[in-house]
Design a protein around this nucleic acid. Sequence first.
DNA 1: TCCATATCGATAAAACCTTATCGAAACTCC
DNA 2: GGAGTTTCGATAAGGTTTTATCGATATGGA
Lengths: 231, 231
Amino acid sequence: MSPSPNDLTPVAIPEPTLKRLPYYYKFIQGQREARREFVSCTTLAEALGLNAIQVRKDLQATGAVGRPKVGYHVEATLDAIEECMGYHNTQDIFLVGAGHLGQALLAYPGFSEFGFNVVAAFDSDPAKVGTEFAGKPILEASRLSDLVRRMHIQIAILAVPATAAQTVTDTLVQAGIRAIWNFTPTRLAVPKEVLVQDENLLASLSVLSKQLENSRVKSHKESTHGKPEEL
Amino acid sequence: MSPSPNDLTPVAIPEPTLKRLPYYYKFIQGQREARREFVSCTTLAEALGLNAIQVRKDLQATGAVGRPKVGYHVEATLDAIEECMGYHNTQDIFLVGAGHLGQALLAYPGFSEFGFNVVAAFDSDPAKVGTEFAGKPILEASRLSDLVRRMHIQIAILAVPATAAQTVTDTLVQAGIRAIWNFTPTRLAVPKEVLVQDENLLASLSVLSKQLENSRVKSHKESTHGKPEEL
DNA sequence: TCCATATCGATAAAACCTTATCGAAACTCC
DNA sequence: GGAGTTTCGATAAGGTTTTATCGATATGGA
Ligand SMILES: NC(=O)c1ccc[n+]([C@@H]2O[C@H](COP(=O)([O-])OP(=O)(O)OC[C@H]3O[C@@H](n4cnc5c(N)ncnc54)[C@H](O)[C@@H]3O)[C@@H](O)[C@H]2O)c1
Ligand SMILES: NC(=O)c1ccc[n+]([C@@H]2O[C@H](COP(=O)([O-])OP(=O)(O)OC[C@H]3O[C@@H](n4cnc5c(N)ncnc54)[C@H](O)[C@@H]3O)[C@@H](O)[C@H]2O)c1
């Protein structure tokens, strides 16, 4: 296949951009409710505390087009983001590990907004198996493999204890899972065609704490600028 | 203050590095339990599915030093990471919003491992106020401001509904909070000296889903390489 | 109608993060 | 003791993401 000039292969959108798009989407939805027809990068940037140029680049990545001095058409831009992010195509998802965190995720109604549908949870605890949580059935963990296969589930949420993380992962992979949203603090070993998105909450909190310490050192340095106040 | 050559201001450690350090820490702890005295970047990289050079750079950022052909001293490196990340200095933290997600966080024992101590939760729901969850008291939301001030709390976890996010944030900021770990899908407006770490779960899942779609397109393209099977 | 201004798109520059290269150190085995 | 090999640290090269620049375009008011 020669590289034709109108090769429609979409250049992969940078992950930071993908993470910001939901914010734009939500804000522009608000603009629609306020009966605004257009929204500019400047407005978006100001509302979200971002850089206007960055917002423009991000929107460009979705295929949305704007008009100078006017901005982006609200409806068209919402469509562009939906299309780009695939909010239309609903995805069925399994959750493994219906513990504290798993139940919070089961109870969360927000997923459907972006086309996600958590259809069932799996747990190894006999006390939980057979019950429902937030209207979702909790099934016996041993059925996971079979159901992933039969229902062609592509995405799984991993919320089991760290000790079970790799074992469950292996099961999922063998059953043909394509992507894992991993809440355990474990780096999963998977074949390269399987995607993993790590959600290491503890690591994120550590980052925040460390940045806080940095900022303390910095502001302290600034405030004592040249004056050895203590020591 | 002239920029002295031996300025000990630590160069800020990149966020990606900070997020990886907990993985190294955990793995090296395992090595200690296995009575190993040294660990090499190669080993770490292989176990965690990372690039050895990256691991080396990350460890260098913590101040750990290694020996050629031998690797890094397990104890010394654990110390270096602890020191660098501040796992020693325990931080008292407040949680605001003891709903599904908030309760999962309250129940999580892992925080203490890295020196975090969630001391109390705050909620506006009278049914929850006055109760305990996982041994942590749930207090009346109106007391938040006063207690942040009096207890010099620096970090807050925000797990309230999106509609309450900015209001609660304003309260926290006025009370002198320094950092917010934000689980709401809202971009918070805060003064620049206040740090915010966004944990937008829905956005992360969207990223995964989008990458999955990309990989599908790619592999499909590869498999039909040059043959217009459909169309 | 024309000018001032806001905003877009394209392109370039800067900052940041990841990966590669290479000499030197330290261990093993012969 | 020396050859071979692994690994480190430093530095450079490569990529990616963010920010800046600039000409072009659309709008509103003089
Ligand atoms: N709760 C939090 O706030 C939090 C924070 C950060 C990280 N995490 C991580 O998320 C994961 C889950 O945390 P949690 O607090 O929900 O733990 P939890 O113990 O409350 O829940 C774990 C659930 O997994 C089930 N389980 C165990 N082995 C299983 C298996 N092989 N197959 C299926 N189910 C199995 C258990 O029965 C339990 O219901 C852990 O890895 C934890 O480290 C949780
Ligand atoms: N549950 C999830 O899995 C999940 C996933 C992604 C994002 N989130 C976000 O996390 C946040 C919390 O989600 P949740 O599922 O726990 O919601 P939830 O409704 O279960 O809990 C919210 C809690 O906040 C309390 N609250 C409301 N207003 C308050 C105020 N002004 N001050 C103090 N407390 C107040 C409520 O009483 C309730 O207990 C939401 O913003 C949600 O969008 C949750």
